[in-house]
Write a protein that binds this DNA or RNA. Sequence first.
DNA 1: TCTAATACCTAACTTTCTTAGGTAATAAGA
DNA 2: TCTTATTACCTAAGAAAGTTAGGTATTAGA
Lengths: 110, 110
Amino acid sequence: MHSPELLKGTLQTIVLKVLKDHGKMYGYEITQCVKELSDGNLLLTEGALYPTLHKLEADGLLKTETVMLGRRVRKYYTLTTEGKSLVKERVNEFIRFIQTMENVLQVDFK
Amino acid sequence: MHSPELLKGTLQTIVLKVLKDHGKMYGYEITQCVKELSDGNLLLTEGALYPTLHKLEADGLLKTETVMLGRRVRKYYTLTTEGKSLVKERVNEFIRFIQTMENVLQVDFK
DNA sequence: TCTAATACCTAACTTTCTTAGGTAATAAGA
DNA sequence: TCTTATTACCTAAGAAAGTTAGGTATTAGA
């Protein structure tokens, strides 16, 4: 497991990219997906995830669709057009940050 | 320039590693060193740096030596033994985080 | 029947930044 | 000489973005 400090600032990027790669997803599904992709190293807490999803929606980057499964509510999130273009920027920004850190820390990631 | 959000959680690691690589340094010198290493992409603010240095010192990871240059004060920081062993851990933790992010974001840093 | 998993959510608190100040010595240029 | 930029230290208020710890409720399985 990683220090949760490192996650700060990357949660939005993770959510946006996972939604881009997997299309329509609901909150709980995102936590499970990230858990799998990270081999159990990244466990998104709901206290962080849901406020993030709500913020991304409020910012017009995500849109929602609420579905009833019997009596159960499920809220699906998808990227808006604006959201789609932001994903690339965010991922590129992260990559540039990593490259900068490689220089500052004098290490080799790969 | 990078989004300052991404810096969160990495400032301690940067300070520790730069001190390990360059030995005795003072605060202002650290900001200039990081600026150079990052090609101007990482500009440490003093409001973030000084509290971080004080915290690392309080935690026993750094020790200080105050030098007078004429009337000017300069405060040098060096790693303690404890600090030296922590640097490796922090850098390794960061590398593992990057590798995890590579999987989650499905990108290739190289 | 009780627990674990699924599925949503909020609120108090903490950490860690940014922003915006303050002080003061020294160097450089108009 | 005066003014500004740079060097060099610092703190405090506020914001951002997490954690921790709750709450509600359905469904599946032992």
